[in-house]
């Protein structure tokens, strides 16, 4: 294992996922240090879920490669699965079974004995404040309870990396805060969390590092402060992969701001000073 494997939970290199002609993820490279919350921020349909599904071994990348917890995504899929867990709109629990049965079921699947699986299920139900609903079918749970049992199911064996797809979508503020508390507690205990969200506030509250993704491309990345200030001081620096993109964007920006951006050809970057904040937000959004 080399140095980077020890520092990064996820290292993706030019990941591409194409469905027919549509490129849902179009060359995303990113590094997620261990022990942090990384948040993908964007409205629906920007490729967030596809990216997470790839990193969780549910989809095979069309191009590119990645390591997750130091394991090659494709060649060592089974090792990847041993170190991750996912929750969200897609990886769910069996609605017909009770909350407790779901947890015991997953406990048995990951290798606990019957007794251990039951103990683990009861511990988690207590921790997630679900004892009273332990024997109720999950389909009868409220939205917040449902999300909590989903997360509990994901940490029956503690994952090193937890993927959460839109963990609080559709929750009331109280349930949302409960889910946030759970996520914070997990991170304090050393779990790396990789989440997607549509809510700026959620990314701001939880994520140490935020990636803004649009039409399958990572268009901005940084801490919440960095991203805010890039809008706040009304200047924006964008780095490009090639000169063609740089030129195209420069011409778009010239039209938008009636002022040519500064172009740095050696670093393939461009910076604009913006007087109008809403335009700045629109430009990076």
């Amino acid at each position: 294992m080399n140095q980077s494997n020890r520092t990064y939970a996820v290292e993706a290199d030019q990941l591409v996922k194409a469905f027919g002609k549509e490129r849902a993820v179009d060359g995303i490279s990113l590094k997620v240090p261990k022990g942090i919350v990384y948040g993908f921020l964007r409205p629906n349909g920007a490729g967030k879920t596809t990216m997470i599904r790839m990193l969780a071994t549910l989809l095979k990348p069309t191009e590119g490669q990645a390591t997750v917890m130091g394991h090659d995504l494709i060649k060592e899929a089974d090792e990847v699965r041993r170190s991750i867990s996912l929750t969200g709109q897609f990886a769910s629990v069996d609605e017909e079974l009770s909350g407790r049965e779901n947890l015991v079921f997953i406990g048995r699947l990951v290798g606990f004995s019957r007794k251990e699986a039951k103990e683990r299920a009861d511990d988690l139900l207590a921790a997630f404040n679900l004892q009273h609903a332990a024997k109720r079918q999950v389909k009868k749970y409220s939205g917040g309870m449902r999300r909590r049992i989903d997360i509990a199911a994901s940490i029956v064996i503690s994952p090193e990396l937890l993927f959460l797809d839109k963990p609080t979508a559709g929750l009331d503020p109280r349930s949302r805060n409960e889910v946030w508390d759970i996520i914070r507690a997990l991170v304090r205990k050393g779990t790396t969390v990789f989440l997607t969200t549509q809510y700026l506030e959620e990314a701001d509250q939880l994520a140490d590092l935020i990636g803004v993704i649009d039409r399958g491309v990572l268009i901005a990345e940084g801490t919440s402060e960095e991203l805010k200030s890039s809008i706040g001081i009304r200047s924006l620096i964008i780095e490009f992969e090639n000169e063609k993109d740089l030129d195209e964007t420069a011409s778009i920006f010239t039209k938008m701001f009636t002022q040519a951006p500064e172009v740095d050809r050696t670093h393939l970057s461009l910076s604009v000073t913006m007087k109008d904040q809403s335009k700045a937000a629109k430009a990076i959004g």
Binding site: R120, D123, L124, A126, A127, F128, I155, I157, S158, D181, I182, A185, L186, R188, K189, G190, T191
Partner: peptide, 8 residues
């Protein structure tokens, strides 16, 4: 009570 069972 939440944190105890989180990490095995």
């Amino acid at each position: 009570s939440l944190e105890k069972p989180l990490i095995l």
